[in-house]
Nucleic acid binder design. Sequence first.
DNA 1: TGCATTTTTGAAACCTGATTCAAATAGATG
DNA 2: CATCTATTTGAATCAGGTTTCAAAAATGCA
Lengths: 214, 214
Amino acid sequence: MVGRPKKFDEQQALAAALEVFWKRGYEAASCEELLEAMGINSGSMYSTFGDKKALYERAFELYASNVFLRTQEILNGSGTPLENVRTWVRGWQEFQEEHDCKGCLVSHTIIEFGSSENPVGHRARKLIADMQVMLQEKLQDAQDLGELPEGHQPADLATFFVNTAHGMTVVARSGTGERDIPGIIRTMLALLGEKSANKIKPMKQPTIDFISSN
Amino acid sequence: MVGRPKKFDEQQALAAALEVFWKRGYEAASCEELLEAMGINSGSMYSTFGDKKALYERAFELYASNVFLRTQEILNGSGTPLENVRTWVRGWQEFQEEHDCKGCLVSHTIIEFGSSENPVGHRARKLIADMQVMLQEKLQDAQDLGELPEGHQPADLATFFVNTAHGMTVVARSGTGERDIPGIIRTMLALLGEKSANKIKPMKQPTIDFISSN
DNA sequence: TGCATTTTTGAAACCTGATTCAAATAGATG
DNA sequence: CATCTATTTGAATCAGGTTTCAAAAATGCA
């Protein structure tokens, strides 16, 4: 490779762009803002990523694959199926805390592009569907082992959890996430039969910091 | 009053604009689209409403006041507190069906303007807060009467219901509302102690059609 | 009918971002 | 050092959506 060397790191710039898109959404994130955060000028951005839309696709993919992997990792953890689901639910709180109550980019993307033929909207719906299946299977395992409280079907619960997660995106963005999310999580855990759910304070889980680099 | 008479009905045009904003969001709704739906040209719109932002404020206000009144009406209905809350929860399904699974404009507005200093964002947050209080009071009444199942606090439940409602906006917009919302409602009703919640099919409630005119 | 007043119309002006591109720059190579 | 290629820079351009406005039209009234 000859010629002037790139002076910025593509992944780092992408992570910076993700941060902006995540906070503001696609439309509201101006190129100026993005370039500022990425630390490069328009020319570099356009030659590297194509255009704003393509940049969003890349940023979304970074987010999506990491959320998916994180979920997969937690649900297939070392505990029983139900314990893993609970850990996953508790993870949401941590996730919001870690990321400044910006909510989930997937929910945000569905709101912005959900009904359109936009490829990112399609990707977002697919991701949710896949995660919902994963969750449902785990809940089915829990039920087969007799871990699940009576009165709920795995499919209904999986749908419900996904719905709750979407809701937290709106709550987070309304500014009351810090106040409200802990209680929401407690109620979810109670649904899973965690009797003392509204007494215990969920403990910190060690997790991968999955956005910054890689 | 002298001069050429207005040939369009302001409230009707506003309702049409609301429909477009509701379906597409503020940014994505182009003036062209709005004017087309309203059946007027830009001049009439600008002289009547001011500008696009002011039009959104008016449309949002129409939506907000009607949702608030509808909620108030249902929660203060003729049943017991808990029955009224259940009726309210069941009403969501109907609401989504009636309105083509567009979700709730308030959730959408919070996503789009929630964190900004935008006055509509502020109004949306306030509306949610007010409705949450109303709901919490009703749940408190239910608890005082011994209607509420053990294990949940009215405040937590109210927060949780609001969260669930927000979630349904995302689910609706992801295109799976028709499939998923009934189950979500059933799970909510089960949380309120409705034992047969996942067997019964919620019956149609007579309600005001609150958007079109008025 | 002619005048005053208000609304409608839609093309033009205007703005705000997104995108391009020619010139400048930084290394690699011989 | 001269040359080559790839990258950076940021001003200029472009695109699209919003807003204005002058002319035309509709009504009441004298």
